[in-house]
Design a protein around this nucleic acid. Structure first.
Length: 417
RNA sequence: CGGGGCAUGGUGUAAUGGUUAACAUAGGCGCUUUGGGAGCGUCAGAUUCCCAGUUCAAGUCUGGGUGCCCCGACCA
């Protein structure tokens, strides 16, 4: 992509108010734009990152045998009455009516829709287990929004639902899903802490949240450094400063975290509400055992920035960077520089690399460097009069200060790594 | 839902109740610039969120509305 053509603009003046660092950087660097409270547009750079995250999730979902579906966001009132959640779910639903006064909600989650669907397709133990996921917009009528993408009213979520014959099979899958989740977060440059959390009255068994430890987080968790035991403060039986009862060694700390995902045993709650029964080998009708598993994509993106940034800007983890190489051409009026830069741009593209090429002839060197650091693409190539003197180009990683002057051939090799 | 704050060119801010609402940034044009957000010149851009009211006079004061932000509560 030629930067001269890219739809973006970095901001030089931002409001004085204190906001989450991730929010400030994403706005400043031109990844997102706020339309209203809790409503955000993803600009080309932001959407590229979003799509990278989507694809990581797709890969890992595929690895645990889940199939992708796409369910309606607009949902009729009846299915919500079956679970008695039309008026009780918190945060409340956004509700609306069609021209015949029939009532609908914008889905804040999809247990109702998926259970209704599963009822039609799952009849026998032979149909189990099954796992379906989707990447889709959710709407939540929260009392308050904050931290930019960290809590929005409309956001994209990956939600996975699994269906099982019995508890044992469910538990096996639950562990598999937990592993997949940890892998997803790792690939996004994050170390997630698995935290026990409340079942919110739906289940007595523990549910698990995936927390990214950072002071910018809204959640409070009790954490043991020694054994990585972790509980959301809302259910914690111990306080900070006490000795960890899990390992009997560490001292518990109170940490803040961003909840980037959670996994939840649904047991037979929705199966009973939707008559989701199957006939088992023993010819007996039994309720399907369900689990649900969610990841907030926007929140994940913000958390990735929150953790991967410095004073100059974002430092994107390799796998979710909008582009993998940022090619800066300086002294573009010099014909040699121009030709070298153009041809290297072609070479990079030919090698199948995602490359952003700063081809703007009027922009000063300083501004190019500044914006490059702000946008945070992992690898930077500079071609200028200076580098051409030795017929080399300059390579620098965003996360380090080391400059390397190498030949174009060498650079192509190194960039592929 | 409780408490607090703010609302002025696209963006960020300034303006003891008193001329023509100022500055920065972003934008257009021209010239000069190119290794860490370039300089000079020039042009353009605002019924000061909306509706009432007080006053000789309102961006500024009062009331209501709307929007946004922060703290708390809430949060599958």
């Amino acid at each position: 992509m030629r930067q001269s053509q890219l739809f973006y603009k970095t901001e030089k003046v931002l409001p004085d108010k204190k906001e989450a660092i991730s929010h400030e950087l994403l706005k400043k660097a031109g990844f997102i734009n706020q339309l209203a409270s809790g409503l955000y547009s993803l600009l080309p750079l932001g959407f590229l990152v979003h799509k990278k995250i989507e694809n990581i999730i797709r890969e890992e979902m595929k690895n645990i045998g889940a199939q992708e579906v796409f369910l309606p966001a607009l949902q009729p009132k009846e299915i919500w009455e079956k679970t008695k959640r039309w008026n009780t779910i918190d945060p409340p639903l956004f509700k609306l009516k069609d021209r015949h006064q029939k009532e609908f909600a914008l889905g804040s989650t999809h247990e109702e829709v998926i259970s209704d669907l599963a009822r039609l397709k799952i009849k026998s133990y032979r149909d189990l287990p099954a796992a379906l996921f989707q990447i889709q917009t959710k709407f939540r009528n929260e009392l308050r929004f904050s931290g930019g993408l960290l809590r929005a009213r409309e956001f994209v979520m990956k939600d996975l639902y699994s269906f099982h014959r019995d508890k044992e099979d469910f538990e096996k899958y639950y562990k598999k899903a937990m592993g997949a989740y940890l892998k997803i977060f790792k690939r996004c440059g994050l170390r997630a802490v698995v935290t026990e959390a409340s079942g919110q009255g739906f289940t007595k068994s523990a549910t698990h949240e995936f927390q990214i430890l950072t002071p910018a987080g809204e959640d409070k968790i009790i954490f043991c450094k020694n054994c990585a035991f972790s509980q959301n403060q809302e259910i914690a039986r111990q306080n900070e400063g006490e000795k960890c009862l899990n390992c009997n060694k560490g001292v518990l700390e109170l940490k803040r975290g961003i909840e980037v995902g959670n996994i939840f045993p649904l047991e037979d709650k929705y199966s009973n509400d939707f008559d989701l029964y199957f006939v088992d080998k023993d010819n007996k009708k039994k309720p399907v055992i369900m689990g649900c598993y969610g990841i907030g994509l926007g929140r994940l993106m913000a958390a990735a920035v929150e953790i991967n940034c410095d004073k100059k800007g974002i430092v994107w983890p390799k796998e979710i960077a909008p582009y993998s190489v940022h090619l800066l051409a300086i002294d573009l009026k010099d014909k040699k520089v121009f030709h070298q830069a153009e041809s290297f741009y072609q070479s990079l593209q030919g090698a199948g690399m995602g490359v952003l090429y700063d081809d703007r002839p009027q922009t000063s060197a300083g501004e190019k460097f500044f914006e490059s650091d702000l946008i945070g693409i992992p690898k930077r190539i500079v071609i200028s009069k200076k580098t051409l003197g030795g017929n080399k180009i300059e390579l620098k990683e965003r996360k380090s200060d080391n400059l390397k002057l190498i030949s174009r051939k060498q650079a192509l090799g190194e960039l592929k790594l």
